[in-house]
Design a protein around this nucleic acid. Sequence first.
RNA 1: GUGGUUGUAGCUCAGUUGGUUAGAGCGCUGGAUUGUGGUUCCGGAGGUCGUGGGUUCGAGCCCCAUCAUCCACCCCA
Length: 454
Amino acid sequence: MKPSTPKGTRDFSPAEMARRNYIFDTVKAVFRTHGFAQIETPAMENSETLMGKYGEEGDRLIFKILNSGDYLKDVTDLPSFASRPSSLVPLISEKALRYDLTVPFARYVVQHRNDLTFPFKRFQIQPVWRADRPQKGRYREFYQCDVDVIGSDSLLNEVELVQIIDSVFGKLNIPVTLKLNNRKLLAAIAQEVGAPDAFVDITVALDKLDKIGEEKVVEELKQRGISDASIEKLLPLIRFQGDTQQKLAFLATFLGENELGQKGIAEVQTVISTAQPLISPNTVIELDLTLARGLNYYTGAIFEVKSNLPNTLTSTICGGGRYDDLTGIFGLPNVSGVGISFGADRIYDVMLEAGLFPSSAQEGTKVLFVHFGEKEAQYCLPLVKQLREAGIATELYPDDAKLKKQFGHADSLGIPFVAMVGDSEMAENVIGLKDMRSGEQVRVTVKELVERLS
RNA sequence: GUGGUUGUAGCUCAGUUGGUUAGAGCGCUGGAUUGUGGUUCCGGAGGUCGUGGGUUCGAGCCCCAUCAUCCACCCCA
């Protein structure tokens, strides 16, 4: 049998982990300075917690966990399920791997509501699983870094999230475009053109405008059952081109007296004008009316972030939005939340492609002690301990081996210094220290050794 | 779920119209050098050519199936 990981999953080597941790450390540091507290939730949830929260496509992509033991004990007339296999799933599977961190968080909030102080600001960095077909920038297991504020309606939370986006990608040196939209605008547009239930269909079709052009978009709208009259009313919107302020002005007219629409416009306007003076030029904010996001639970602002670096992954590296009633499903109504999720694996891909990882992201052992045998190794142990206590990452080569091999080990691990102890060093109470980059070698006391490597 | 791509050494790949014993670079390993890595030189190990079947005197190469992989669509971080 040839060993391998399951489709769409990966192992991470020490070098990869060092770089991944650089991303996690950066993200965490920003979250903490904004006062978010970390939680974790289990990899698996009860299926009923997850199912129906992500839309039809989402349900299909949830990994289901087969019940333990006699999982067929509740199934009668098995052959009858051959024609409708999906209805067998609830009978043989009651748990599933989490699909995102937001829905488990909503469950967490409801379950622990009596222990929480609202507004509650939490962050969560854990893997999620999707039964997608893997491809570039798409994995079946990947890490999300979520920050959410729940129990507050204030748009200042949206503004804070924009600042966090600016801050994280600023620290990582990735210039980004933050695309902003609002579900209220999308719902209002659908109302105004006389297809109030079809706003998802309308936005999904609009989203393809750049790719397939106006004609095909109209065709797709028809296919999705939008009436000709509604499409006619949509055309001015489809054809409109302009920057964010022009779009808002256009919408103010297009949506007229529509209350939801005016509210959406005001929200977008407030978020942008409040956040703009607080962020760096690293982040470009733009209103993108084609941004829908498939997740069912969003009700207000929606965010999506893409890298502006040339020749890097073009897919979304961060996304999120406001959900007014996600906790309602679990029995706690009228609690609004807003949050975003950083896709660590995609950010990693972008940074690797652009060569953005600093060398400090791969520092390991600083000095390796090499020796000639048992006696010398014993002699090294207290020295090694002293260096470690001084905060210097230190290793002792464990086996008796030729110096060539021990030096080669330091070299292949990229350890910058080798400390050597043999008879003459022991006699003179010194340590041989070699700088592996320059090749320079000196004899120093323990005290000097600590000073040089600190 | 739909369409396509590619499977040859640990890795990246070459392999002519089907023809003797399947190659290269890198990596690994031993030596030159029993107190010195990275550079250099010499040697060595490592392959069921993804898997199963078929065509043929003969298959890494052609055909069928299957699995895996990557890419695109859908959707998404």
